[in-house]
Design a protein around this nucleic acid. Structure first.
Lengths: 232, 232
DNA sequence: GCAAAAGTGTTGATGGTACACCCATGG
DNA sequence: CCATGGGTGTACCATCAACACTTTTGC
């Protein structure tokens, strides 16, 4: 249970709550547990922290890159919370440092992985259902979704859900899907274009979608929204 | 380096950033380190987590009660962040789960403790000074102050700095001192009395301070501020 | 009365919602 | 031409900063 040190040691895990928007719903990345405990249930991707010289934030980024196949430096990744209830893992004392990651609608969630590797699950299918998720991962997902919903209001987080180039309609759909709330397209347009540094026009426009072509934007340098875009 | 398990173990510490307002300044509770490393420097109060069955949130509450002599259940305590840089402690790999606590102006910071026990230090004296604090505790205090400043805007956190009964002037001084910003007393009064569930009048008034007596309030049931009280 | 602190009323600026209206494309 | 989605103008409403003004105490 402990090492030869007089200071007791505890296992530390790093888990990821990776959120994305796909097929008009908010999804979370989950893996099928192949081992006990909670064998067969769904769990957040993650792993134990080694004693090697790796910052926990870096470890989370490495995990994220492994799971998504993308460069974690280009994705949104932030610490969410640390969970340390005494018997959350029946094997031993485990404290989990959890991270919230936001990724765009990836073409392949787990292209070159194992059979039972990560898959996207709609958030509203896992929340409120008991017996589906391992450990306290239901609570963690709920906290992650709360954080994401809240940060859409006063930060530029929504662009992390979008591809590198996107239209204002696509950005608005992110808000609507994450918040489960309809927004007025006209007022939304004015709000987001009015925030300095939020959106940078690429100079290109969409075509072939029916209707007037939309200006295509890239994320700007701003990280906070002045003024914020508030829910109801 | 590791136990008989294949899972390596790491030491987990729980540290507290306890903030209060006293003598018209924001203070943080610090202890003098009596042992290496960083012997003689100031550090946040805290300790290692044992493997015993104690939730980390509960462990933080116990630490807070020990340091302040107050019932932690009646104080504001929330998780701040977890710090896990590889060499933040030169002895071994230590990951620290940090908590932010807010307490009123206590009559005694460390009444019945050791000689070099905890003491209150003005925040503006420790921030930006190198060589004064142990470990990465300067960064942690900066994060704690940021969190507190931000939460005054949209939560009822400010009442946690006040005694159980307080006037609107006292509440305003909390905002002004934590934000380092002067507020208009008249508009502030209207704002805080306009938020439902923020303040509950006790029916009593102050006397003997010169000037018109102020109504004395208790904290109400609200935890979030609708509408928020914003900085400039 | 006078100083000091508490509390109210009012005005002009600003930001938000609701919605009428115009623009640019595909079919 | 018409449907569809993109984008602008505007009227009305809530909120807020600024500050004149009233209230209630101690001295």
């Amino acid at each position: 249970m402990s090492t030869s040190w007089t200071i007791p040691t505890v296992a530390i895990a790093v888990d990821l709550a990776v959120l994305t928007v796909r097929t008009e719903r908010l999804h979370v990345l989950l893996v099928n547990r192949g081992v006990e405990p909670y064998r067969g249930r769904l769990a957040l991707p993650g792993g134990f922290l080694s004693t090697e010289d790796e910052d926990i934030d870096v470890a989370a980024g490495r995990e994220l890159a492994e799971e998504t196949g993308l460069d974690a430096a280009k994705l949104h990744l932030e610490q969410l919370r640390t969970y340390g209830a005494p018997r959350r893992d029946p094997r031993m004392r485990v404290v989990t440092v959890c991270y919230l990651a936001i990724v765009p609608n990836l073409p392949l969630p787990s292209a070159g992985g194992d059979a039972d590797r990560a898959r996207w699950v709609p958030v509203d299918r896992v929340l409120g259902r008991r017996g589906l998720l391992a450990f306290d991962h239901g609570q963690i997902i709920a906290d992650a979704v709360d954080r994401a919903r809240s940060k859409l209001e006063y930060t530029t987080l929504a662009t992390a859900f979008c591809n590198p180039e996107f239209t204002i309609s696509e950005l608005r759909r992110v808000y609507e899907i994450v918040w489960s709330e309809e927004l007025d397209p006209r007022n939304f347009h004015r709000k987001v274009t009015g925030v300095e540094g939020f959106l940078v026009p690429t100079g290109n426009r969409t075509s072939g979608n029916g209707g007037r072509p939309a200006v295509i934007y890239r994320p700007g340098p701003a990280t906070v929204l002045h003024p914020p875009i508030l829910r109801n």
